[in-house]
Amino acid sequence: MAEEKPEKPSTVDFAREITSKLGGETITYCYQCGTCASSCPVAKTTDRYNPRQILRLALLGQRGEVLTEDAIWLCASCYNCQERCPQKVEIADVIYALRNIAISEGNIPAIYTEFATGLMSEGRIVPISKFLEKKRADYGLPPLKPTGIEALKKILSATGFDKIMFKKGESQ
C-alpha cells in the first residue's frame, strides 16, 4: 500500500481526489452537523461505523485510515443520511466513491473477493448449495436456472471488473 507511514493531514488533496470521483462530488459541503450519524441504523448498533467521522477523516486528508480500515465497508446503503443531510452531501454515494478508491488500490475485504469469485465462476454472489435447493423445493419454488456465465464473463472482463477485483492478489 502507498500509505504506510503516518501521514501529514492534507485537507485539499484527498478531498479533491474524492470530489473527482463519481458520487464523491458533494463531500466538501459537509459541515459536520452529525445528522447522518444520528440517522444511521448501523451507527446505532456499532461504534465501528460513523458516517460523520468518515467524512471528517476524509476531509482532514487521513487517506490511509479511511481507505484501509473497515468502516467504509459497514454502510448498509439505506440512504437515510443522504435523505436528511442539510447540505445535500450524497453521503452514501461518497462512501461508494471511497470504496471504489479503496478497491482500485487493492484494499478489498475478503468477503467482497469471495463475492467476486462466485460471480466470476458461477455467475452468482451466493453459491447454490444443496440446502438451498432443498429449501426451494420445500417452498414449491422451481429449481434455479443456470446463469449465462460466458456472457457475464465477457461483460465483467470488458468493464475491467476482473482486473479491479483481483488487483490485491496480483500485487502480492
Partner: peptide, 15 residues
C-alpha cells in the same frame, strides 16, 4: 446561559 446551567449538545438531531 452556561453559567445558569443550560446544556449544549453539538449535533443536529436526526429525528
Amino acid at each position: 446561559a452556561r453559567e445558569i446551567g443550560v446544556k449544549f449538545v453539538k449535533g443536529r438531531p436526526a429525528e
